[in-house]
């Protein structure tokens, strides 16, 4: 966007000429032409990101769209996606926020390593995550065999499995976001609370948590969006059973092979959800600079 603006005529100001006096040095090189070796790749990059989305809109089966979107299968997949992503976010909050607090506020041996391990799922191919989950919680998995034998609980290829797979992939986003907010928050508020008689947990609950609420919210949205789009770990660990484990991304992939128009329609829904999320976060990130 910046490139395009720099190229266009400046609507106001003392002319965009190259000899514009360098009054207050602005952070952006406003009113000056961006050099071509930067401008061309920048435009290409922008186009590369936008063209596929445009293609999606151009080729969307607008006429049959209402019909596509009201089909029972779409609704089933969409509902499952929303429910699972939300459940995964809640689970991430319950175990991820305390984990973030531990990383940000306490000092224990090997904290750096723990932090690295927490962020590992961010870079791990989701399919590998799915395989790892199977080896841990599968029916013959390290933990799964005991869950099965003692409690009769089976996790893989169930809706719960979907939630677990999504949590595995999405929680690091929440942890990193909350940890960053915690580090930026003044820990002395917790001390002030303690001198007033609050236990460390009360201080966390009544002081720290409200203070970092914006960061927690942003992290939650990020985690939720990541969970909503989860594909690799889900299909590996939970399979692809309509109504039980077939979330939107899985449905899109499947539909693309049988009914491309349906795939496009489903994709449009996910695109709309993503744009809504971005709009919800715009105050936080879009105006970051």
């Amino acid at each position: 966007m910046t490139g395009a603006r720099a190229q266009g005529p400046a609507p106001a100001g003392p002319g965009p000429g190259p000899h514009a006096p360098p009054r207050r040095p602005a952070r952006r090189t406003a009113g000056r032409r961006a050099p071509l070796p930067l401008l061309i790749p920048a435009a290409a990059g922008l186009a590369f990101l936008l063209l596929p989305l445009l293609a999606l809109l151009v080729r969307a089966p607008w006429r049959s769209l209402p019909e596509q979107l009201t089909s029972a299968e779409v609704w089933q997949a969409l509902r499952l996606s929303l429910v699972c992503a939300t459940a995964a976010t809640v689970l991430s909050l319950l175990i991820g926020v305390p984990l973030a607090w531990l990383l940000a506020r306490t000092d224990f041996p090997g904290r750096g390593l723990v932090r690295a391990l927490v962020t590992l799922p961010l870079v791990l191919p989701p399919v590998v995550g799915g395989v790892a989950l199977l080896l841990a919680f599968g029916r013959n998995g390290v933990v799964g065999q005991w869950l099965d034998a003692w409690f009769g609980i089976t996790l893989p290829f169930t809706t719960t499995g979907v939630v677990l797979a999504e949590t595995f992939v999405a929680m690091p986003f929440l942890v990193i976001s909350v940890e960053g907010t915690l580090r930026a928050a003044d820990p002395r508020y917790e001390e002030a609370a303690m001198t007033l008689g609050a236990s460390r947990f009360t201080a966390f609950r009544r002081v720290t948590l409200p203070l970092i609420a914006p960061g927690v919210a942003a992290g939650s949205v990020l985690a939720w969006a990541r969970a909503l789009g989860e594909f690799g770990a889900t299909i590996t660990f939970a399979g692809n059973f309509p109504g039980r484990t077939q979330t939107m991304p899985l449905a899109v992939y499947l539909a693309l092979q049988n009914d491309p128009a349906a795939a496009v329609a489903l994709s449009l829904v996910l695109l709309a959800v993503s744009i809504a999320v971005l709009a919800g976060l715009r105050d936080r990130w879009m105006t970051a600079s």
């Binding site: 002395r188 508020y189 002030a192 001198t195 236990s199 409200p210 203070l211």
Partner: peptide, 19 residues
């Protein structure tokens, strides 16, 4: 521990809970 001491503290920049 600090939470059990009969001690009140006025901090330098007060640290009033902003929320």
């Amino acid at each position: 521990p600090p939470e059990s001491r009969p001690v009140g503290v006025v901090f330098q920049d007060y640290l009033l809970f902003p929320h």
